[in-house]
Simulated assay, not measured.
Amino acid sequence: MNSDIVYFPIHEHLDSSHLGQFIGHEGINIYKIEKENGVTLDICKNEEENSIVRLTGPYWNLKCALNDVVELVTKIRNNNQRYKFKIPPKDVGFLIGKNGAKINEVKLSSNVDVHFDRSEKPEKPDGEQEEDTDVFVTGNYQTILTGLRLICDRLSSKGQQTLYDDPRTLQFAESLMESF
């Protein structure tokens, strides 16, 4: 039986930083596509040094394997969406919390990744205020919404005392009892 070759320009659909997720731990994703479809899958570079997926095998097997490749790329893209917003530099420390406790709580509670752009900003003439800090939240659509809500709640609570600040209060004890 003849083997055909199909090329899929993965660089057009997936950022190169996510190529490792496509390959999978110890190549598990490639192995799975190869075994389920009876094809050979290689990742190579074209003349412009862009990543290309090369599938080799019987025609109908290639069609199924290509479908699996596109499905995997879509899944990776959906799980790696990125939302960017800006906050004033004075709020960055409050959002992060002591030793990163508050931002880690947001990350763990919503299953997102949060990064701050700390690159050097050019100085502004005439003593203007510093530029806002870029904040990037990465995850899937639902986790990003949850993370943004937690970040918004944290920022809106600035300057307000919460019942968790002093665990000796009656409100803290009532809140604790309600959670049981």
Rank of each mutant, 00 (worst) to 15 (best):
M1R: 13
S3C: 14
Y7C: 05
Y7M: 03
F8S: 02
I10R: 09
H11F: 05
H13V: 02
H13E: 11
L14I: 03
S16K: 06
S16D: 13
S17K: 11
S17T: 07
H18T: 01
I23T: 10
G24Q: 04
G24P: 13
G24K: 09
H25K: 15
H25Q: 14
G27T: 08
G27K: 11
G27P: 05
I28A: 10
N29Q: 13
N29G: 10
I30V: 14
I33N: 04
E34S: 06
N37M: 03
D42P: 05
D42L: 07
C44S: 13
C44G: 01
N46I: 00
E47T: 11
E48D: 05
E49Q: 11
E49T: 03
V53Y: 03
V53H: 02
R54F: 08
T56F: 07
G57T: 08
Y59K: 13
Y59C: 03
W60D: 15
K63N: 13
K63L: 02
C64T: 07
A65W: 08
D68I: 02
V69Y: 00
V69I: 09
V69S: 04
V70Y: 13
V73C: 02
K75Y: 04
I76E: 01
R77G: 00
N78H: 09
N79R: 02
N79F: 03
N80P: 04
R82H: 01
K84V: 15
I87H: 11
I87Y: 14
V92L: 09
V92A: 00
G93T: 07
L95D: 05
I96S: 03
G97V: 01
G97K: 05
G97W: 08
N99Y: 15
G100H: 07
A101V: 00
A101M: 10
K102M: 08
N104H: 14
N104G: 04
N104I: 00
E105F: 11
E105V: 02
S109G: 14
S109W: 06
S109K: 11
S109R: 05
S110M: 03
S110V: 03
D113N: 12
V114Q: 04
H115F: 06
H115V: 06
H115S: 11
F116I: 10
F116S: 02
E120S: 10
K121W: 14
K121V: 12
K121S: 09
P122C: 01
P122G: 02
K124E: 15
D126P: 09
G127M: 06
Q129D: 15
Q129K: 15
E130K: 15
E131W: 12
D132L: 07
D134K: 09
D134N: 12
V137A: 01
T138N: 13
G139T: 09
Y141L: 08
Y141S: 12
Q142L: 07
I144F: 08
T146P: 00
L148G: 07
L150K: 14
L150Y: 15
I151P: 08
D153M: 05
D153A: 02
R154S: 07
S156W: 11
S156C: 11
S157A: 13
K158P: 00
K158S: 04
G159N: 06
G159H: 10
Q160S: 11
Q160R: 15
Q161K: 11
Q161H: 09
T162D: 07
T162P: 00
T162Y: 14
L163C: 05
Y164E: 10
D166H: 01
R168I: 02
T169M: 09
L170W: 10
F172N: 08
F172Y: 15
L176R: 07
E178G: 12
S179N: 12
F180K: 12
F180P: 09
